[in-house]
Design a binder for these strands. Structure first.
Lengths: 122, 122
DNA sequence: TATAGCGATATACTAAAGTATAGTACAATT
DNA sequence: AATTGTACTATACTTTAGTATATCGCTATA
């Protein structure tokens, strides 16, 4: 038998969990977030450098997504007061821990592909 | 020094990884996939039952997303040949292993929230 | 002086995702 | 005979995501 108190706990708990999952999804969703995070895994990068490294991205999208990622605390933007100004982007501490999410996704994705293929054989 | 062979390996490897991540993302993205998977974690469900349990979902979306999830090997649809017909949806084996992805997302989401809040205090 | 590079922004558009609302075909219930 | 329930589908619409293309202000270089 399930007590009402327990149900309430489960509800509020799963509510928090759903929020946390959505926070995580928001950080990596869309067409360009992963490619951007990907290039930054190899170190600091400048705007034009990233534009060159990420095929087909437009400056509009790069600018927009970098702002998003900065607001979400994934990317840190540093402006050097030189002439001309130099702007560098890098992952924050939290951004660097994203592999904790991405690694299981890689593993599950591959296992799931195997599973789907094995089902087809029937 | 990095050899060209190594670079090639990294490239093809990360290519596969990105594919696997995208496969995983496709399974859980959109507004309704997680709520649907969420209700099915507690067992088999029928269409109208899910419609009642997932607030604000329209039958169009439920139908569409269930088809998506079925095609992706996450949900299994069983039609019972009774009169009237009874249709039940449940998670596949692969669908049930999704917690391996979701749990780290919950953990990261919560840690990240802490991180962002701690940054604000400065 | 013209051209190129840096780090973007502005405007206008198309495509994808999601919503609102109605309706279908069947059967059981009142 | 009319209403309710099940499992959807159809049509039209709005909202969000992404694309295409041009431009800006600045500096360094040819």
């Amino acid at each position: 038998m399930v007590k009402i108190a327990d149900l309430e706990k489960v509800k509020s708990c799963s509510g928090e969990f759903v929020l946390a999952i959505n926070d995580t999804l928001n950080v990596i969703n869309g067409k360009w977030k992963l490619p951007i995070i990907g290039t930054l895994l190899y170190g600091k990068k400048r705007f034009t450098e990233m534009e060159r490294e990420i095929p087909k991205i437009t400056p509009r999208m790069l600018s927009k997504e970098l702002k998003d990622l900065e607001m979400n605390g994934i990317v840190k933007r540093t402006v050097y007061d030189t002439t001309p100004v130099k702007v560098e982007y890098e992952l924050t501490k939290s951004g660097l821990t994203l592999h904790k999410v991405l690694d299981p996704m890689i593993e599950w994705g591959m296992e799931h592909r195997e599973y789907v293929l094995s089902q087809c054989k029937d």
